[in-house]
């Protein structure tokens, strides 16, 4: 599968990355390299091997269901660009 620069632009848009034409070309070259690597790996026979979902062979540790956090709104909001009535203010989003 070959990657087009349109694919790169689409991924950039989804990741909300503003990229110049030069950056897109550089990313295209790098990503094509990664795709090549994946193609090499896909040649390996993995029949009967359980897919890995994490690099560490461990199970998730669980926490007891208890409230441990206290209200630190004032502290957290002291570094927010804009707050009002306890809310974080952000540019309006119209979907």
């Amino acid at each position: 599968m070959s990657l087009t620069s349109d694919d790169v632009k689409k991924v950039a848009r989804l990741a909300r990355l503003a990229m110049t034409e030069t950056e897109i070309q550089a990313a295209h070259a790098q990503m094509t390299g990664i795709f090549g690597l994946i193609e090499d790996m896909q040649a390996i026979n993995t029949d009967g091997i359980e897919p890995m979902s994490h690099a560490q062979d461990l199970a998730q540790r669980l926490r007891e269901d208890a409230v441990t956090e206290t209200d630190q709104r004032e502290l957290f909001q002291s570094v927010a660009p804009q707050v009002e009535k306890g809310l974080y203010l952000v540019p309006q989003v119209i979907e």
């Binding site: 804009q82 009002e84 009535k85 306890g86 809310l87 974080y88 203010l89 952000v90 540019p91 309006q92 989003v93």
Partner: peptide
Amino acid sequence: SLHEDFHGMTGID
């Protein structure tokens, strides 16, 4: 998201 008008901004809880 609270879309009432906060000076043209959106409030987030």
